[in-house]
Design a protein around this nucleic acid. Structure first.
Lengths: 333, 333
DNA sequence: TTGAAAGCGATACCAC
DNA sequence: GTGGTATCGCTTTCAA
């Protein structure tokens, strides 16, 4: 490769212009106190004049630290994830980490192959709601030796951040019970989703402790269309209220119910999960279990940094909070 | 650094295990046809056994190609961007590129500093709706020599992909004119946003050719709250229809109008821009100018690859399409 | 306090 | 067809 004037400046260029050695440039920039003020200034001037920024990849090669973190998630089109990613970004930047982002399109195979491909370019991974099996993830880990933190799922032995769905479900069911509902339907999300299983588990425990009937529908894709697809099934069931796997599914239900002129909450109450922006803006506004998305992202980065710093992080569980809006009401007589 | 059994395998390990030189490993993996089948098999076996994946950063150092592209955008919380990013990801993966993502929080200073920091780790940038000034962007470019493609904005001399806002505005204005409206308000987005200026330009030309009055409000943040903040101003104006900078702003208007029981479209018609998922789900559903988000993302990657391949890409303009929904109706008598 | 030199992991070139 | 070696940009001993 021929170095033309067009190439970006390297440490050599700075050294030459400042009239010192590479080592001194490196020190002047990284540990200013170890170098004579005069030298430091010369280096700083030269660096500024050349617009020098160190090549982080080259640095990573020798330090073993890339200052990148990898974020893998199933579907950026689900508004839940951008919120989490945004929080991750913000927190990562605080510690001068950059973010590699990968969308797997809900495909477990893509997921593991992406992890493998990215592994050497990042110091660690934040896997958001990974769809691959526990054993596959462990295999990746053994093979790659890249620290992994899992969000929205618990997979031993990885540190993880999860929402307290059980408590969220308890709140939701308590709310519906107070309104007089005794038969609830649940529209299940993807079979591969740990959150789905977790939410269902919490829901079962809540309904049984309230001695209510639970009717399970699904599984559906975690999208508006997924919800619309089972709306008629739900309507035909004896349920007077329905809890959806997430807000998108709930919105699908709402849409289809409106199209069929099934009154919400007059004839059936609808509860979502996640509290995405949409939930508060539709009519009727959606009652939903809010998840601390920002907190999950932030905590994920913290756990990963702990891991990287040699500390052993503990799993974190973030609170959930029922947000009551217009889509739930008293059971129809 | 001490190489323990815990470290991920390198090309040396593979060479040792296969009993060949590094060079052969490299060739066997990159250009299988240039090596004896027997050697290739030995190498492949060794690589598989060790779980060897090449270090892309190290490779990039020598090839000058990182196989990464950098995506920079102002706010992931605006649903418009995840759609674009998703398309970028999909297209990038087709060509085996990984994506670095950065959210600048609408801050031009963060934007340029991120670009500089990432420059060496990517082969090129896709800047989505960058907020920095033209001259700042050009300065980055001169300094870094990293190819840049700009989305949703035109900044000479960068290749760019933009939506045909003028045509979208023409469609929207034509639609409103046909409904009898003669006085339209526009709620402007961020002053730093090129799209905002572009849309306004298109709108001015459309209203003037229809001989309609244009009342300008704003500038507001491109969010729901931004829209809500000027809703009362708009309501107090003589406008019978309002076009918002984007859908989020339009939803803010819609919300506030409902709170004040200002009928939409009975008393005032509302038009958005972008056609995010939300737009179709609120009540009344939002009439909006749809932008080809996926196409923008895809075209962006294509232009960037052209640039990287030494071809000189031409600017692209993607079509817009008015989606008529319930939020627009005949002018009130 | 500074400089020379080794080396991170991979590729490319040049002999053989 | 294969191996040795220089090299990418940077950090880090180790001497001076």
């Amino acid at each position: 490769m021929i170095r033309g004037s067009a190439m970006a400046a390297t440490i050599k260029d700075v050294a030459r212009l400042a009239g010192v050695s590479q080592s001194s440039v490196c020190r002047a920039l990284a540990k200013p106190e170890q170098v004579r003020p005069e030298t430091r200034e010369r280096v700083e001037r030269a660096a500024r004049d050349l617009g020098y920024y160190p090549n982080r990849a080259a640095r990573g090669l020798i330090t073993g630290r890339t200052a990148n973190i990898g974020v893998v998630l199933p579907d950026l089109a689900n508004p839940f994830f951008p919120s989490v990613v945004k929080a991750i970004q913000t927190q990562a930047r605080l510690f001068d980490y950059a973010v590699f982002l990968s969308d797997t399109d809900e495909d477990p195979a893509v997921e593991t192959s992406l992890i493998r491909a990215l592994a050497k370019q990042v110091d660690g991974f934040l896997l958001c709601s990974p769809r691959a099996g526990d054993e596959e993830l462990r295999a990746c880990d053994r093979e790659l030796q890249t620290p992994i933190v899992v969000l929205n799922r618990r997979v031993s032995p990885f540190p993880s951040v999860t929402a307290d769905s059980a408590d969220g479900m308890r709140q939701a069911v308590g709310h519906l019970h107070a309104l007089g509902h005794r038969r609830i339907a649940y529209v299940a999300g993807p079979r591969t989703s740990w959150s789905n299983r977790d939410r269902l588990r919490g829901l079962r425990s809540a309904t049984s402790s309230y001695d209510m009937d639970l009717i399970e529908a699904g599984n559906v894709a975690p999208t508006v269309d997924g919800g619309a697809a089972v709306a008629d099934l739900v309507a035909a069931s004896p349920a007077t209220a329905v809890i959806a796997y997430n807000d998108l599914v709930a919105l699908g239900l709402l849409n289809r119910f409106r199209a069929r002129e099934i009154a919400v909450p007059g004839r059936i109450s609808v509860v979502g999960f996640d509290d995405i922006l949409l939930a508060g803006l539709v009519t009727p506004a959606l009652t939903t279990v809010a998840i601390a998305k920002e907190q999950i992202g932030r905590a994920g980065v913290e756990l990963l940094l702990d891991l990287l710093g040699g500390r052993s992080p503990v799993n974190k569980r973030t609170p959930t909070q029922l947000i009551v809006r217009a889509s739930t009401g008293p059971v129809p007589q």
